[in-house]
Design a protein around this nucleic acid. Structure first.
Lengths: 116, 116
DNA sequence: CAGTATCCTGATCGATACTG
DNA sequence: CAGTATCGATCAGGATACTG
């Protein structure tokens, strides 16, 4: 009843409400481990900047682990942490819900447009 | 072609990534039915404008039903649609996850700050 | 009461160029 | 390869005032 009940979600969920975080996490989950450039290829329309920013944020939150190999040329590998993996089932549920309801939402939007 | 067309999750989830949609839906779920001003009171820091905008979007998407009573002064009641209700369990899971992991995320953020 | 209409600010995001 | 730096555009969101 207290609005604070939903407050933790605001802080946390806002991170995944951004444009790329969920997409990056899904790719990392699918491939287990990916290099920077490989994530970029798996998400063709993400810019280098936004990929870096997104990975930095996910890393800071402890959802993604970053491992640097001291080689030349440099190699950096990313993978989900245990906490990051624990979020995957929830993301999957959301995707599933979106798939099931997308048609109705689109229809509703069109109807709403037409009624004014 | 818009990438949102190909990726249902981006189109749908972006709506709930905004600042107020989830909070409004949670309030409507808890009270079953609420008037405009009552939602505002249950979410003290939402502006009148953002409440109206959020409700309009949720209504357009078919997640919230709006009922106007032809009275003076006007009375308008909002409640979740069936589709809106179907989203509540997923939101609850997200809130639950956020509660369980919030501590670790905060600690991770602090550690990340300190390491550079 | 239940909203609109304006105006404005800060954040988000993208393009481009550059680097260890 | 794996980034960072800089700039500019776009947009979500807030403050305030007004209305049927």
């Amino acid at each position: 009843m207290n609005p604070d009940d939903a407050c933790p979600i605001r802080d946390i969920l806002n991170r995944f409400g951004d444009k790329w975080s969920i997409l990056v996490m899904v790719q990392l989950h699918r491939h287990r481990v990916l290099r920077f450039s490989a994530i970029g290829k798996s998400i063709p329309d993400i810019s280098q900047r936004m990929l870096a920013v997104t990975l930095r944020t996910l890393e800071a939150d402890g959802l993604v682990k970053r491992k640097v190999y001291p080689e030349v040329p440099p190699r950096v590998e990313y993978q989900l942490t245990t906490m990051g993996e624990s979020l995957i089932p929830l993301i999957r549920n959301m995707v599933e819900w979106a798939r099931e309801n997308r048609g109705e939402i689109i229809r509703s939007r069109n109807a709403y447009e037409g009624r004014e």
